[in-house]
């Protein structure tokens, strides 16, 4: 493939080995392609066609289930909700957790290690356990059925991003910090002007991984977004799933619809995402 400069000189033997890997991975990847293909195919079938001929080609193409989704069940609105929620949450998560992680990992103080562990505790519980106290708080803050409330909650669940950011910040060259300090820059200036721009790869990674978490989250929206017009995509799909047999033509098309933005994001922007990750690669 002509794309990209290959930084490594490789031998013929190595090239052959890589080709074997490529072939193997192609086979592996065809599984997910096949499953998604079946889902898309199924979404164009009529209900009774789907029952008898679950995996084959549709006998007649129909857009009925998409029509039901979009015009009766208001799926576009649901889509919009998920999009807004995800975008705002990512902004919140990246902002607050990078700030916290920076404080934890760039400065040496007595309880830094303990605090680091403290921020990990959130990963060690099932979230369902604490739902009642959270609900009472959210209600007092008037944050039920409020997308901002959800953004707050997602940002507060910062264990994972804080951890990853901390690991990364520890690898940033200390010399840069000292030099800026000598120039008289304030702590926040250093952070926003020097450290954050250097952190693009990890920001991209966190943004990506958090997108998945938020987009696919089922439990928090179920509890805190109770109004029909605030439903998220995952809730929508889950609702069809829990009345599986009656709705399963809708499951195919809802699943297809929920996959489209993800495929677009990765298919068309993967070049950008990767270059976002690479552009920050460090030169010491």
């Amino acid at each position: 493939m002509a794309e990209g400069k290959n930084v490594f000189v490789i031998t013929k033997r190595e090239r052959r080995i890589r080709l074997v890997y490529s072939i193997f991975l192609s086979l592996y990847c065809s599984i997910v392609v096949f499953l998604i293909f079946i889902t898309f195919l199924g979404s164009f079938k009529t209900k009774s066609d789907l029952v008898r001929n679950t995996l084959g080609f549709p006998r007649e193409f129909t857009l009925d289930s998409y029509k039901t989704l979009i015009f009766e069940d208001n799926f576009l609105r649901i889509f919009l909700n998920s999009t807004i929620l995800t975008v705002l949450s990512i902004a919140g998560i990246v902002f607050i957790s990078s700030l916290t992680a920076y404080g934890l990992s760039r400065f040496k103080f007595k309880y830094a290690d303990t605090l680091q562990t403290y921020f990990l505790l959130g990963l060690m519980f099932p979230i369902q356990l604490g739902i009642l106290p959270i609900f009472i708080m959210m209600r007092k803050l008037n944050m039920i059925n409020n997308l901002f409330g959800m953004v707050l909650l997602y940002s507060a669940n910062m264990s994972f991003p804080v951890f990853i950011f901390s690991v990364f910040f520890r690898t940033l060259p200390y010399a840069l910090y000292e030099a800026a300090k000598v120039d008289g820059a304030g702590e926040f200036t250093i952070y926003f002007r020097i450290m954050l721009p250097l952190s693009k790869p990890v920001i991209a990674t966190i943004a990506l991984l958090s997108t998945i978490t938020v987009w696919n989250d089922f439990y928090l929206p179920l509890v805190f977004l109770t109004k029909d017009n605030l439903r998220t995509v995952t809730l929508g799909v889950y609702r069809y799933m829990s009345n599986f047999l009656a709705n399963w033509h809708l499951i195919f098309s809802a699943a297809s619809l929920s996959l489209i933005p993800i495929i677009i994001l990765f298919g068309f922007f993967s070049r950008n995402i990767i270059s976002g990750i690479t552009s920050g690669s460090l030169k010491q």
Partner: peptide, 20 residues
């Protein structure tokens, strides 16, 4: 570091640690 950590600390403690 206090200024960096504090906002996150409060948010995290209130919405994650305290309920759990």
């Amino acid at each position: 570091y206090i200024l960096f950590i504090l906002p996150g600390f409060i948010l995290y403690t209130a919405f994650v640690i305290y309920p759990l």
